[in-house]
Design a protein around this nucleic acid. Structure first.
Length: 442
DNA sequence: CTTAGGG
DNA sequence: CCCTAAG
């Protein structure tokens, strides 16, 4: 009995990304949920209670790692052999989409896997398994099967294991978790039905993120079901506007009035725009789509403010459905800006871009390689590069000197990537970042 | 507006 | 990531 379920689960975990969750595997869900939870959070003592599961945990982890390893290699090799990212971007459409999805897939793996970095360099993945994993992953990638099943699993895990949920790390996890908590005990029989899936797919279409649509969907659903707790939660998640914006805003609305060095009345300022508006305003500056004419700063600002006003009108209106919808999509777009973990693919893309265009051509790289990802401003790219340099050089140091990596479970980058980074670093020295460089100033 | 640099 | 100063 028990063993049956276990083996079933084992088998399933390997295929979880490629299968639609249906009735036949529901029995295994409980175990699996535990496992997923296990992946999501770092190993904890609580898991001892599931000692039966722990037995084959390693096995699964290895498998997991193998796939990841392969995917990295695959992605990397693929890009190289396809003539760099140029071709990818040039063709747009399919390739890009595939890349995005892959990106997402990697993202998950990247995030989920927290340790065992040494696995990376081990070439222990057998070809048969590889090709299997590869094919299925890719297939289901194009069919967006990843997000579906992953989401479904995560959902389940959350409704059952909500107890574990004070682990920080991924926005997605936190939000979903909290949402589920707010929905109360196990009474909700939320199961990944077709509707959910389609819903997710839809929102996945327009902006292709793996995270935000989930969040937004959760939000919508819970706001329908729960009316009280939701508002609280949502407000909790909203980020306060920055000082600058508030200042600008008050300057605009009150016609030159205040000079608060620090405006701390933000909390009750009725007109204080939420984070979403802030971001929209920001985005306008960065990638003006509607406004092509160069505008003075304050003018741009007025635009965003106006948008905000119309938005508030909307929320004031009674058609809650539509309001929620528009709001949802917009906030979903904007919210994700806040923190988005860099995926391996993105890193590689960035490195490639730098190799092509050189360090400092951030806008070029952004336009050409990150055109599809509205987040990732040129500044972000630069920041990331800065961090990459730092981390890669640090990694190099650690490799050569101290072999004990007891404290930092930080996922090191795949070898080839680090290599390229280091190469690029020596070619185009990023000003002021390279610390390990010996000051050869005599 | 874009980059660099600091927080 | 965010913010600001400087070309």
């Amino acid at each position: 009995m028990e063993t049956d379920r276990k083996s079933h689960s084992i088998k399933k975990l390997g295929d979880v990304k490629c299968q639609r969750v249906d009735e036949s595997i529901v029995p295994g869900l409980e175990d699996e949920a535990t496992k997923v939870e296990h992946f999501l959070s770092e190993p904890k003592t609580e898991h001892v209670s599931f000692d039966g599961i722990l037995c084959f945990e390693k096995e699964n982890l290895e498998r997991h790692l193998k796939m990841e390893d392969y995917l990295c290699a695959f992605d990397y090799g693929w890009k190289l052999s396809s003539g760099g990212l140029d071709s990818i971007n040039g063709q747009g459409g399919d390739d890009l989409k595939l890349e995005e999805v892959l990106d997402g897939l990697l993202d998950e793996d990247f995030l989920l896997d927290t340790e065992f970095p040494e696995k990376f360099s081990e070439p222990d993945c057998g070809p048969c398994e590889i090709s299997n994993v590869c094919n299925s992953s890719l297939e289901c990638s194009s069919a967006c099967g990843i997000s579906e099943s992953s989401i479904a699993t995560i959902r389940e895990s959350n409704s059952k294991n909500g107890v574990l949920g004070n682990r920080v790390g991924c926005d997605l996890r936190n939000t979903i978790r909290s949402k589920f908590r707010s929905q109360g005990p196990v009474t909700d029989t939320v199961r990944p039905t077709r509707e959910h899936m389609q819903d997710l797919d839809e929102s996945d279409d327009d902006e292709k993120p793996l995270v935000s649509p989930i969040l937004s969907n959760q939000k919508v659903k819970s706001s329908i079901k729960v009316t009280e707790g939701d508002t609280v939660l949502r407000q909790k998640r909203l980020r306060k506007p920055t000082r600058r914006y508030i200042e600008e805003f008050s300057r605009n609305s009150t016609t030159e009035n205040s000079k608060h060095g620090k405006v701390q009345t933000q909390e009750e300022h009725p007109q204080v725009p939420s984070e979403s508006q802030l971001w929209r305003g920001r985005r306008k500056k960065i990638m003006p789509k509607l406004v092509e004419v160069p505008l003075p700063h304050w003018n741009i600002f007025l635009v965003s403010v106006q948008e905000f006003e119309s938005d508030s009108e909307l929320s004031a209106s009674e058609s809650e459905d539509e309001d929620k919808r528009t709001k949802r999509s917009k906030t979903a777009c904007d919210r994700r800006k806040h923190q988005r973990a860099w995926t391996l693919v993105e890193v590689i893309k960035l490195v490639d871009g730098i190799a092509q265009y050189g360090v400092g051509k951030w806008t070029d790289i952004k336009k050409l390689l990150f055109a599809s990802s509205a987040y990732r401003t040129p500044v972000d790219l630069r920041d990331k590069w800065r961090n990459l340099l730092r981390s890669s050089s640090a990694q190099k140091d650690n490799r050569s000197e101290v072999v004990n990596k007891p404290k930092h479970p930080v996922r090191p980058l795949p070898k080839p990537v680090v290599h390229r980074i280091l190469e690029l670093a020596t070619i185009h020295p990023y000003p002021k970042v390279h610390s390990p460089k010996i000051s050869a100033v005599h």
